[in-house]
Design a protein around this nucleic acid. Structure first.
Lengths: 345, 345
DNA sequence: ATGAAAGCGCTAACAA
DNA sequence: TTGTTAGCGCTTTCAT
């Protein structure tokens, strides 16, 4: 086989115009402003378009309109152990949500140590119309940069560093999720519900922790010694859980992530304690791990599909220069209950 | 803040040319064929390019060269429970691999019931140079279609239906992976090593199974009753494992996926059997689930980074009309050993 | 309601 | 080695 190339040239506006006996401009109007055409002309042109299977050339259109209909998303390299799973699920839904409006997602990469790397190149090449930014955990230098150069963007994640930032964003109330999980454990009869969270430097982690704290306060439970901060891995969580369960008074553990919750489940297995019955456990993000962990891990689920839809809506608003009704949108998570938080018989 | 737009117009070829005191064509050559320029002219032009931060407009270049430097990848919607995790990890590495050559990955979606949906539109709009196809489990109708219309593409996955297909592809020898896993279990002293696989309709599943079969044959073990086919979910696997372990003679289970292996681990937990010590278990794909499952799941790992590199290499070969040295490339998986297959003292 | 002319920024082909 | 001309396919502007 010789390497293949497209052979038959695509039909162009001119082809369609000639075939339909109209000018090129009329065909263009049929596509972009059909209301300008007389009904029969429109029908005739559309018939030819259909017949030829004509689709406008994107490069030409982009050159003229300065709009690529492409949305850039920086995609981090796969990291061992770390779960990009949430982002991945978000991207899937984002692709769906953009498809309906003829936009596409372009992935690009950048130096992991430089959060700004990559944006500039795409921008200068006028390759994308806008960016969607997902990694706002460590502040939003990208947002600052893009605002400075006047590039449109929307972030999934609130501007932690600068609550006064006026760019459009969508986020999920993590504190509400942790609160739901904690209340659920309290309702199951667990008095001393501990928190296993991330290091203090994580804004997201501290936000989630505040939800746990709020629930305990509302229930009148003393939090002393119940809040623990560790790094996000199974083993650290397993060891922290062992320490935490030593004296037998802690019977509920709300966790900042599924990874950490799974570490707690491991510790329970090693102590011959029954998840749900002896100790209730909840995770965060409803990852695949939560679904397959034994005996099923209760977890807070972010409404990613809705997040994607809102993000795309905001992108459109920004691109059309129309001020969005509400540029900052906070969505609520839900709790997916599985057996790790339920008493058996 | 009023919705932002790029304000300062990007410099163009003409800007650079004027500033450097040369013609536009010379600037173009400085970019695309620097060897044509005299050294000092080149240096002067490059200095101006640097100074102005000039980057060629992609749309204009694409219109002229008919090459978008965009590679299309159909991205399936997030499916509940099903793990796209392998594909996701592949995409991450693919983005990395393409970045080095100035290509980008464009995601698009399509009707889940129509494997061809979406390709056509991008093609007609001349929006992408080539496609990467990942979902070849159920045959390769996309490959047939793209070959017919003369569009360049490379598949991750061999052409199961038609071994004589001549398109470029990269795949990982699943049978070799299953063989490695089975040999590993046999070496650990397990005699009767069972296989828990997918339905017979899965070509990938049957291929992996053949590796298990080969290993048992080489070890002189009778396979009667040891090979079982189920669907890919934790619960089906859990129940199948219970049936399989009933008589106590099966002490090793090689699984076609991590999901199924995790189901086996659940069954072991319910029977109070120790993974690794009483029954050795292996999975497939080294997913996050394998890493966090208790007590750690031994799993076959596909060299996705290498797959991505080979895929990109083939894409370039195809696009440059140079016949690739070897259009069909089979890579070998490795076994990641964890405690589910190791005896504890 | 439709058509003609111009031009977006770039590179291929050719001329100097 | 460098410059000139033309044109990729489309939409914007203006004329009819």
């Amino acid at each position: 086989m010789s390497p293949s190339r497209r052979l038959d040239p695509q039909p162009t506006l001119a082809t369609v115009a000639e075939r339909a006996g109209v000018s090129r401009q009329t065909v263009s109007n049929a596509l972009n402003s059909p209301e300008l055409l007389r009904e029969d002309t429109l029908a005739r042109v559309q018939a030819v378009i259909e017949e030829l299977g004509y689709t406008p050339n994107r490069a030409a259109r982009q050159l003229r309109t300065r709009s690529s209909h492409l949305i850039g998303l920086r995609f981090e390299p796969a990291q061992e152990g770390t779960s990009n799973a949430l982002i991945d699920r978000f991207v899937h839904t984002l692709v769906e949500a953009t498809a309906r409006t003829g936009h596409h997602i372009v992935l690009f990469s950048g130096d992991p140590h430089d959060p700004l790397d990559g944006y500039d190149r795409l921008l200068k090449a006028t390759a994308v119309d806008a960016f969607v930014i997902t990694d706002t955990y460590a502040g939003t230098p990208q947002a600052d940069f893009l605002r400075k150069v006047g590039a449109p963007f929307v972030t999934f994640g609130r501007p932690w560093d600068d609550p006064s930032a006026r760019h459009p964003w969508v986020d999920v109330a993590g504190s509400k999720g942790a609160q739901l999980a904690t209340e659920h454990l309290l309702a199951a009869g667990h008095q001393r519900v501990a928190w296993l969270g991330w290091e203090k430097s994580s804004r997201i982690g501290e936000d989630r922790r505040s939800g746990w704290s709020r629930a305990l306060r509302a229930a009148g439970v003393d939090q002393a010694g119940l809040g623990v901060r560790i790094s996000d891995n199974v083993d650290a969580a397993r060891m922290a859980a062992h320490a935490m369960l030593e004296d037998g008074t802690v019977t509920g553990v709300a966790c900042v992530s599924d990874t950490i919750a799974i570490g707690v489940l491991h510790a329970l297995a090693e102590r011959n304690l029954r998840p749900g019955t002896d100790v209730g456990v909840t995770g965060f993000d409803d990852s695949l791990g939560a679904q397959v962990a034994w005996p099923g891990l209760t977890s807070v689920r972010q409404p990613l599909e809705q997040v994607a839809i809102e993000v795309v809506d905001l992108v459109h608003a920004v691109l059309s220069l129309r001020a969005p009704a509400e540029p900052a949108r906070m969505l609520e998570p839900t709790l997916v209950v599985r057996r790790s938080s339920l008493r058996q018989d």
